[in-house]
């Protein structure tokens, strides 16, 4: 239950952040969450949550769009020379994948920084 709540909170944070600010906000939110609660917001959970957030926004867009999103996806796939399999599915899939990669990068960097700092603090305390 706690894990599910974590996913939900992170996904809401990513969705709200993306609504308010451009794509750069995703790794920033991921890093902040890791720095706030590393045990709870693991890179994996944040990766999944970011994908869900962007996928959700995309789904909402697709639901409200006046045309079939698959048709638009096909057109876009044609423009960016993306694989045409799945009726433009590749470019649709790329959207949450990109969010996932952005979140994982931000989270992984924050975690590494935090761990290094932790190690430095620990080694300083260990010194006589």
């Amino acid at each position: 239950m706690r894990s599910f709540t974590t996913y939900v909170i992170a996904a809401i944070a990513f969705a709200a952040g993306s609504w308010l600010a451009p794509w750069e906000i995703v790794p920033v939110i991921a890093a902040l969450l890791v720095l706030l609660a590393p045990a709870r917001f693991t890179p994996f959970r944040l990766t999944v949550a970011a994908a869900v957030a962007w996928g959700g926004i995309f789904g909402w867009t697709a639901f409200r769009a006046p045309v079939e999103t698959s048709a638009l996806a096909r057109e876009l796939a044609g423009i960016v020379h993306a694989p045409s399999w799945g009726g433009g599915g590749a470019i649709v899939l790329l959207t949450p994948l990109l969010a996932a990669l952005l979140a994982w990068s931000g989270a992984a960097m924050a975690l590494s920084v935090r761990e290094r700092r932790g190690r430095r603090v620990a080694s300083a305390q260990a010194r006589p």
Binding site: S18, W19, P22, W23, E24, W54, I57, F58, T61, A62, R64, A65, P66, V67, T69, L72, L76, I79, V80, H81, I91, L94, T95, L98, L102
Partner: peptide, 23 residues
């Protein structure tokens, strides 16, 4: 000729917003 990756796929401001603006 590829577009800027992340700004293009940003689901709010990117290319998918075009679908929302379609109506």
């Amino acid at each position: 000729p590829l577009p800027a990756l992340a700004p293009f796929l940003d689901p709010v401001r990117g290319v998918w917003a075009v679908a929302r603006a379609g109506v």
